[in-house]
């Protein structure tokens, strides 16, 4: 189907885009990679009056490493992150970028767009919740930096004001003795996961110094499984402890039944994914090369 009629605006800079947003009002939508917006427009679920295209602004797609953090331009494509050698040092980021949908989506979709969309099934928010992540948000004349947890408000809702946009995503590089993994169950490559689990784990000797566990697609926002983390933090890691962390994660999930699976099943699944992601994260934290991929039906 074709979208409803709309006016098209090509922004020349992020500032120009913010200006357009404030001038055009609520009927305006930003177009980044368009991998969520365009299908919604074609189905006429989204009917923007104005479309402000960010794709012709130079200098918005980059991966810079400075002061112990990665800085991602808002229009950095998933595929660029997937291919980045420096990002590969933080395997959980690579797991995420490489596992999003299919090649076509990864070539177009952007990290900034994904976070701004705040789809409860999106991959980036879940993964970045396990790391230290900040989102820079800009209006015409100023900008502010929010922690990811402050940025994400609800399903499809962020802290962005109507004339504000994401201008950069900043992710702190975890320490040397830290490793992470992100595993989702997806029925096919292009669809959203049924459930996903991201785990970032820092070791000290044979103990777990710190751990963050985030669950995707099982709530209105990505969920931190704090009791699961507590089960492992400071402990010597054993399969039994991992199992109890997975059980705690299961309890933290708040899934809904839909065509991807029943709520009960998703709770079962997310526990299994936490277990696998934790095992992979642990091996990576210990310096092993571990290939991780999503599970497909």
């Amino acid at each position: 189907m074709y979208p409803r009629a709309f006016s098209y605006h090509r922004a020349s800079s992020l500032k120009d885009a913010a200006t357009l947003l404030s001038q055009l009002g609520e009927g305006a939508k930003l177009l980044a990679g368009g991998q969520s917006l365009i299908p919604l427009m074609k189905l006429r679920f989204a009917n923007p009056v104005h479309l402000v295209d960010l794709n012709f602004i130079s200098g918005t797609s980059y991966i810079r490493e400075q002061d112990g953090a990665f800085r991602f331009g808002p229009l950095t494509r998933h595929a660029e992150i997937e291919k980045s050698a420096s990002v590969a040092r933080v395997p959980i980021l690579h797991d995420c970028a490489a596992g999003i949908a299919d090649v076509q989506v990864r070539n177009r979709g952007t990290i900034g767009g994904s976070l701004a969309e705040a789809d409860p099934s999106g991959d980036w928010a879940t993964v970045l919740l396990t790391l230290s992540c900040e989102v820079r948000c800009a209006v015409q004349s100023s900008d502010r930096t929010l922690k990811l947890t402050e940025f994400l408000k609800d399903a499809f809702t962020t802290a962005l004001a109507p004339d504000e946009l994401v201008s950069e995503v900043i992710v702190k590089v975890p320490p040397e003795n830290s490793g992470g993994a992100y595993i989702a169950f997806k029925r096919t490559a292009p669809v959203y996961p049924t459930a996903s689990a991201a785990v970032q784990l820092t070791v000290e000797g044979d103990r777990c110094k710190d751990i963050t566990i985030a669950l995707g697609c099982v709530g209105l926002l990505p969920i931190r499984a704090r009791e699961g983390e507590a089960a492992l933090r400071g402990q010597q890691i054993t399969p039994k402890l991992i199992a109890s962390a997975a059980d705690a994660a299961r309890a933290a999930a708040d899934p809904q039944s839909d065509m991807r699976g029943s709520a009960d099943y998703k709770r079962q699944l997310v526990g299994a994914l936490v277990k696998r992601a934790t095992e992979a994260a642990l091996r990576r934290a210990r310096g092993q090369q571990v290939e991780v991929s999503h599970i497909y039906a």
Partner: peptide, 16 residues
């Protein structure tokens, strides 16, 4: 129909 899109219907693909 709750499986009216391919996201919900998930026709089999090469990975499956």
């Amino acid at each position: 129909m709750l499986t009216a899109t391919f996201s919900d219907y998930t026709p089999i693909t090469a990975v499956n």
